[in-house]
């Protein structure tokens, strides 16, 4: 069956039970032609997300064996865990493109370094609320349409920083 399609989304029971929903196994899920159709801004922001998350999943499984990991590995693990948390999405709540790109920007640029994993959902909600209220026309709309300028990046970083401060 796999050979006659343009890719597959592979769902796994164990991920589902861990609360990762949609329970997509990143390593073996692919889209063979969709990349060329992806929104430009998303491609820039999340271009390496898939490979990063696949590597993280392996690292995470491996790190279970040893308790002491070096600083760099620790950071990679932390980023992966937060991104994984970020990709969790409840049912019947599809998210507009602009908001997706905005929140994933925080994940891939490591802007969530200073918050705890448990705070990730709260951060996401506060961050998107803030953007919707203050930066709809100059950030969210262009991101949804595919543009990502240095100015938008600056706005995203500033909003993220102020939201993180308010969460502390």
């Amino acid at each position: 069956m796999i050979s006659i399609t343009d890719g597959q989304i592979y769902l796994e029971q164990s991920l589902f039970n861990q609360g990762v929903r949609p329970a997509i196994t990143v390593g073996i899920s692919v889209s063979r032609v969709g990349g060329s159709a992806q929104v430009k801004s998303m491609k820039k922001v999340a271009g390496t997300l898939k490979i990063d998350q696949a590597q993280w999943a392996e690292l995470e499984a491996f790190s279970k064996f040893s308790s002491d990991v070096d600083k760099v590995t620790e950071m990679a693990l932390d980023k992966g865990r937060k991104n994984n948390q970020l990709l969790i999405q409840p049912q019947y709540s599809p998210m507009p493109m602009g908001e997706q790109v905005a929140i994933l920007y925080c994940g891939t640029k490591g802007l969530m370094r200073d918050i705890a994993i448990a705070q990730v959902p709260a951060f996401q909600e506060a961050f998107l609320d803030r953007l919707r209220a203050t930066h709809k026309a100059d950030v969210l709309d262009p991101l949804g349409a595919g543009t990502l300028t240095p100015e938008i990046e600056k706005n995203l970083t500033e909003t993220a920083e102020s939201v993180i401060l308010s969460l502390k």
Partner: peptide
Amino acid sequence: LKAIDAMIPIGRGQRELIIGDRQTG
């Protein structure tokens, strides 16, 4: 869905298989 639009983007005209055990969403 963030996980799909970011990592496994689907284009119009594509055939993307959704595969998994029962009760996996």
